[in-house]
Write a protein that binds this DNA or RNA. Structure first.
Lengths: 207, 207
DNA sequence: CGGCATCCGTGACGATACTG
DNA sequence: CAGTATCGTCACGGATGCCG
């Protein structure tokens, strides 16, 4: 539990940084945008964070109304952390950071960790339309709730239900698109992205 | 000089936080969006930052291509820090943070510092049109370059030249608008904001 | 006097070990 | 599995000193 180190400035950006400016906090938000996650899952997908810092950040986020802790119903009764609607409103902040950070992404360094769902934010920004989209990479499968303003914005694993579109691509293409080197439409035209389904997202991509 | 503590994640948001996630960095960017500033000015408008941290952040920002150090021509030859175009591209990040932080702003706490130009970001987001706008508060005067994509986005003091619009309001109104409690248009209708000039910004406000 | 560099006390962070 | 406990290290904040 932090004794709340504040900037003490009457400025909304400074207030935002009072809540989410600490190290790791926004990356925890990025993880929780994928829906409810257990402590151990979070720890596994945030390589480098220490157990006590993760626990402390989650407590801060609970106290500040960004996340809640909930016990899953048995069987499998475990605690999961979940964003509140206030927490989900941080999506534009992560999108702005991600858009700016594109230019810094470059090639993958040997020391860089990767998780398939980290590509969810850039893809989400590039897709038009609405619907459930499944994305298949060799490294893993995840899904996007494009245009959805409540509930998780994306999730690990296959789409829960029949997706409106399905994208299959290799990680190199996905990275190039995330870096902004190639537009998604161009990658589709080049046959580097396979699109199936007939939702608005799929149609927009083929147009 | 920091030995660059990286998250080591192949994710553009994480890369962005590698560069601007350190304490004070984004608030320094907020200050420099107002144009070239001297070290002492920065120190004065960032109460709480220690001298060494400020110097260290500025060096990091220079190394990372976010800011440059330049000597002003005599007379008054001093060093000023100035954002690069890459640094100015952080405006959307600060806007997203500020928009989210609105809800946390509330009333001014006794410990909160205030500077007139900290209201520039919220106002800039709320104004439509283009042109040079001068904003007059009791606490101080600043100006906005609305719709300008190069150069400083706002500045301390009166507008350099004849402004296209001039807004006069009290700090309570300015704070209420920044908190999102009142729309700017409503405040104009209520006579809490005085608008002069005939630029597109002024016309949009009176419409 | 502006622009830092240095020193120092405190607290945040990261790694590992350990417990309910 | 979900954290808490411990500990060494480093970053931060405050004060002071130096140097142009």
């Amino acid at each position: 539990m932090s004794p709340r180190r504040s900037y003490d400035q009457y400025c909304s950006a400074a207030r935002a940084l009072d809540l989410v400016g600490d190290r790791w906090t926004l990356l925890i938000v990025r993880e929780l945008l994928a829906g409810p996650r257990r402590y151990t899952d979070l720890h596994a997908d945030l390589p480098g964070v220490s157990t006590d810092v993760l626990a402390s950040r989650l407590k801060d986020m609970e106290r500040d109304g960004l996340a809640t802790r909930r016990r899953l119903p048995p069987p499998g009764a475990a605690y999961v952390y979940e964003l509140t609607s206030r927490g989900r409103e941080l999506l534009p902040v992560l999108q702005a950071l991600g858009t700016w950070g594109q230019a810094e992404l470059g090639e993958r360094r040997p020391t860089d960790a990767v998780r398939a769902h980290w590509f969810a934010l850039p893809l989400l920004r590039l897709l038009d339309g609405d619907g459930l989209v499944e994305v298949r990479l060799e490294e893993g499968v995840f899904h996007l709730h494009v245009g959805d303003r409540e509930g998780p914005v994306y999730g690990d694993g296959p789409a829960p239900g029949e997706p409106d579109a399905r994208l299959t691509l290799d990680s190199g293409t996905c990275a190039a698109v995330s870096r902004g080197e190639t537009s998604l439409a161009q990658a589709v035209r080049d046959g580097r992205v396979e699109v199936s389904g007939d939702g608005t997202v799929a149609k927009a991509l083929r147009a």
